[in-house]
Amino acid sequence: MNEEQIQHYGDALYDAWRERRTIAPLLEQEPDITLADAYRIQLRYIERRVAAGETIVGKKIGVTSKPVQDFLGVFQPDFGQLTSGMVYQEGDVIDLGTLIQPKAEAELAFVLKEDLQGPGVTAMDVIRATDYVVPCFEIVDSRITDWKIRIQDTVADNASCGVYVLGKTKGDPRKLDITLAGMVLEKNGELHSTGVGAAVQGSPANAVAWLANTLGELGIPFKAGEVILSGSQSALVPVADGDELVCTVGGLGSCRVKFSGRSAV
């Protein structure tokens, strides 16, 4: 795709995000979009948000589980950018009015204490460079109508990132079995689903290493202090006004989040 087309679709996604509405799947409009094109569109969309005052605070990794990869017909994860406007603290109430068609997923987030520069990064390097891990919720959202996404659509749409909430309990990955730590997700006091760290690429650290290497190919390092959402360990949970979700990572702790208001769809 030429630069003009990239800008066009990046701007369309930015406008859809700002106006809380959806657009038709990009592949329906432009059947030949490649994955590389999709990342360029993502970059344009995020540049627009940065130009409007946000800063980049980290990355999210998506499409990390085998069922989701099978569904989208891909064999590797994808990634998006976390910006300052997406951040909620545990205890905050998330205003669904800022979102379009949100769903929640429970994850483990990594916060780095050292830069990580791929290629050549292993899971062992990830643990070494990690300051701490915390349980978190990512509230995914799609600017694409009815979530009718293929991999190029979600990548262009910043890996369907909405907002995220970090828990307050910090864990040291040297003291915690992040691969076998269980994930228990409750909705309004009832068990919703369970998972385990291994659901994410065999281990969340593998997903972070994959992203360090993927970014490394593009010459982009992970910076100390960045937050990395490593990928969903739970089923997707629809959320509505008044809902409360709690995710608990075995041996670590919980993250709790409440929702109010109505999303656009």
């Binding site: 079995d177 076998l180 228990v184 369970t194 998972g195 760290g197």
Partner: peptide, 15 residues
């Protein structure tokens, strides 16, 4: 957390 592997491949997971 629990992971069930068959022939080296993860086939079921949960808590």
């Amino acid at each position: 957390g629990v992971v069930l592997e068959k022939n080296g491949e993860i086939v079921a997971m949960g808590a």
